[in-house]
Computed example of a mutant assay.
Amino acid sequence: MFAAGVLATCGGSPAGADPTVAPSSAGDAIQRMIDLSRQSEQLNQQALDAQSDLDGKLAVQHDADAKLAEATQKVADAKDEVRRYQPIIDRTAIAAYQGARTNRLFSVLLSDSPQQLLDQISTLDLISAQTADQLDRFKKAAETAGAAESTARTADEAARGAAKKADAVRTDLERKRTDLSGAITDVVQAWTGLSTRDKATLAGTPFPPGFDRDSLLKGLVPGSGTSALAAALTRIGDPYVWGATGPSQFDCSGLVQWAFKQVGMEVPRTSSQQAGFGTPVARDQMQPGDIVFFYSDISHVGIYAGNGLMVHASTFGVPVAVAPIGATPFHSARRF
């Protein structure tokens, strides 16, 4: 596949093609198109990663805000409880300050009869028990209020920190989206400038010479990986679109995610996230259905089809196709 071969010359980073410089030949025009597409693919994956990061930060912020609201309500409830016992505590404190005599000796001195003494002692015991119980409840309510306020302060700090991180990621995402938008414009302009013949050369063929899709499908052993490969093979010829996840247009990681979703497996959205999913597989141990990653920044991914081939959504102007994995700088492989 010609496009895959040209891609191999791009290395692990954007070539920085200048869309304002007119190509000197058809080959140069195609190469510029590939260079720009490679850059846009990197930016697309970076923007998707930033969006995923933002979603995570917003979830943390939402959780922190919920905990802050809960802690604030607990502070209010605890203070209400303190206020409920405060009048009783105030009256007890005032009575003690004014010298109120409520002990048993005072009752003996003032009693006119044994029965009156017993009655006074019983009353004093009851008052003492009630006061002690109320004092204990007041103390617990005050402690609860203090703990709730401490928790609320911690929750407030967490919420502020989460919001700050989310804002920083949001700013980064907006910048990446702006960069991607500019890159896409350059790619589309470069593609528009290609001749019909050059566009056909860029698109290449859906299968390499001698590839037999039907024979491959018949030889697959049912399983999540091989079943996902079979699903991906049904999308041959669908266009590459930045950020697309199917069902009829894809970017590279969108195709992988869609294929595994067809067999009931949820996998991460971006190529870098997918590179941490599943189990590592050595290059010489790869089997059809394994996932292969490319470039040092893991900005491209495909599904291994065996015999050194993969199914992937390559780049703008190149439909989903089967291509050699050796045409792109190999990074790693995983088994989902």
Score class of each variant (00 low, 15 high):
Q120W: 01
T20C: 01
A64Y: 08
L105S: 09
G237V: 08
I121P: 09
D172F: 08
T151C: 00
G12D: 15
V292H: 01
R197P: 00
Q86E: 11
L109F: 14
G317Q: 00
T151N: 10
S248W: 04
T196A: 15
E149Q: 13
S111R: 07
A96R: 15
E70Q: 06
S111D: 06
P206S: 11
L58H: 01
A141F: 03
G16I: 14
Q61D: 12
A162I: 08
D251R: 05
A275Q: 05
F330P: 08
T328N: 13
L58R: 15
G225K: 12
V311R: 01
A66Q: 10
A158E: 13
A158G: 05
L124G: 04
L229K: 06
Y295P: 01
G12N: 14
A166C: 07
S13K: 12
I121W: 06
Q134C: 12
V108D: 02
K140W: 00
A158R: 13
Q274P: 00
A148W: 04
G289T: 03
R235T: 14
R101K: 15
A47M: 06
V318F: 02
S314N: 09
H300S: 02
F207T: 15
L202E: 10
H331N: 15
F293R: 00
A142M: 07
W258A: 05
A71L: 05
M286V: 07
I30V: 15
E266N: 14
Q274M: 04
R32T: 14
T315F: 00
A203W: 08
V221K: 13
G264R: 12
G161T: 15
S128W: 01
S181K: 13
G306W: 07
K199I: 03
Q273D: 10
S224I: 12
G243R: 02
F250I: 05
P329R: 12
H300E: 06
A259S: 14
L180G: 10
S296R: 14
Q249C: 06
A259K: 06
S272G: 06
F260I: 07
S248D: 14
F316S: 11
Q46D: 15
D198I: 05
A159C: 04
I30F: 07
D284P: 01
R235Q: 15
K57L: 15
T9A: 14
I325H: 00
F260G: 00
P247D: 03
R213Y: 08
V21S: 11
L233K: 13
